[in-house]
């Protein structure tokens, strides 16, 4: 467990989270949310939780993003905030 790597990825996770809720386009929000999930999976891999990070890589960064894009495709990309 390398604490420098841990700190850098944690800060990137927070940046991705702020980006996902601030961006003015829901499709961009979907992609930033996928990036957030993948960085989270790296964080868990560093902590030694291999099963959890495997699940997050397949669920959070994979299928969840697909659901999100499908929903945005069927509704609208527009958002006011």
């Amino acid at each position: 467990m390398i604490w420098e790597l841990d700190l850098v990825i944690l800060i990137l996770v927070i940046i991705a989270a702020i980006g996902a809720i601030q961006v003015k386009d829901l499709l961009g929000c979907a992609i930033l949310f996928g990036a957030y999930s993948f960085l989270m999976c790296l964080l868990w891999a560093i902590m030694g939780a291999v099963d959890v990070s495997f699940t997050e890589a397949s669920v959070g960064a994979g299928v969840s993003t697909v659901f999100f894009v499908a929903a945005v495709f069927r509704t609208t990309r527009r958002t006011k905030d």
């Binding site: 809720i21 929000c29 949310f33 945005v72 958002t79 006011k80």
Partner: peptide, 12 residues
């Protein structure tokens, strides 16, 4: 105010 943004918040 956007419902999808609320869902993203919930997931975070």
């Amino acid at each position: 105010k956007n419902l999808i943004k609320k869902l993203v918040g919930m997931n975070i």
